[in-house]
């Protein structure tokens, strides 16, 4: 039997799609954001992405070898984990950070649960919060984009948190990615290209990303820093890891709810937690934490939103 494990709500209509194909399509859709990151931050960014992927794939191989399981590195899931993890890292970090992060993501985030399809939490995010908790100084150290003469090295969200003026970033800068930040998060345009591709081909549904982003926008508009109903919602959408998180991480098949109703609850939950952390928390960004917390809620959401069995 090949790996045909597709978690999907009923009715189970057969489609010529395998896990492998979906994974590689998602990877393909993430390529523009990676290229944009490399253009913006230079060759260092490529190094981080490369190390993250190589370490994730070889960790998967090693662990499956040690536990005498079938080697499934060609299904692309480890590749995707490494890719997503490196996208959430800044480009100027020691080489061992993406390596250890990917190893943790694959071992504790995935293989200890028995492998693909069984994990509770998004592996890439598990790797990311491990790195943040372990070496916070490296992960929050940002460099400005190439050819940018400002000396600032704080992300727009961090500046906002310190109540500093953020007029130095125009919306266009934020949209195109001319700002300090994580490799794969900065260029919103490239991310949206990939997201539209996935939506059009039906690999992800709109429910989670749209409710997620709308909730963040609404909440930050109402309770914004400048006063009630005067928050800068567009700024909040365009900065940080919201777009990457909403379209590519929160929509992970394994760790998000099965039904559309559940997905909407999931998206709103993610949005609320993200907005609350951004507005009042000590961390500038809450996307990673909020998706992980909602991952923990997923089994409960599924339990209470599953389609009723006819006749009961």
């Amino acid at each position: 039997m090949k790996n045909r494990l597709i978690v999907s709500p009923s009715p189970h209509i057969y489609k010529d799609e395998s896990v492998e194909r979906i994974m590689w399509m998602v990877i393909l859709s993430l390529v523009p954001a990676g290229i944009a990151g490399i253009i913006i931050f230079g060759i260092k960014a490529f190094k981080v992405i490369f190390l993250g992927i190589v370490s994730a794939v070889s960790s998967e191989w090693l662990l499956q070898r040690l536990t005498k399981k079938k080697i499934t590195i060609s299904d692309g899931s480890a590749f995707l984990t490494g890719l997503l993890l490196s996208y959430t890292l800044p480009s100027d970090i020691p080489f061992w950070i993406p390596i250890l992060g990917s190893f943790f993501a694959i071992s504790i985030g995935k293989q200890i649960f028995g492998g693909l399809g069984q994990n509770i939490f998004n592996p890439a995010l598990v790797g990311r919060i491990f790195l943040v908790a372990s070496w916070p100084r490296y992960i929050t150290h940002f460099i400005p984009p190439l050819g940018y003469d400002a000396v600032t090295s704080a992300t727009p969200l961090a500046l906002l948190k310190r109540q500093e003026i953020f007029e130095q970033f125009s919306y266009i800068d934020l949209f195109l990615g001319k700002k300090p930040g994580c490799i794969g998060e900065v260029c919103v345009l490239a991310l949206l290209l990939g997201a539209i591709f996935l939506l059009m081909r039906g690999y992800i549904s709109w429910h989670i990303p749209i409710t997620y982003i709308t909730t963040v926008a609404l909440f930050t508009y109402v309770f914004g820093a400048k006063g009630l109903f005067r928050g800068d919602w567009l700024f909040n959408i365009l900065s940080g890891g919201l777009i990457l998180g909403a379209f590519f991480m929160a929509t992970d098949y394994v760790t998000s709810p099965l039904t559309h109703k559940g997905q909407i609850i999931f998206g709103i939950g993610c949005g609320l937690i993200t907005a609350v952390i951004r507005l009042w928390g000590g961390n500038p960004e809450g996307v990673n934490y909020s998706i992980l917390i909602m991952n923990a809620f997923t089994p409960i959401i599924d339990r209470y939103t599953k389609n009723r069995i006819y006749g009961r």
Binding site: L100, I108, F130, A133, S134, W135, P136
Partner: peptide
């Protein structure tokens, strides 16, 4: 040696 601070956090204890 750059120690991963996670291990002195509560979550590290559980891990």
């Amino acid at each position: 040696f750059k120690p991963p601070a996670i291990f002195i956090l509560p979550a590290g204890a559980l891990l």
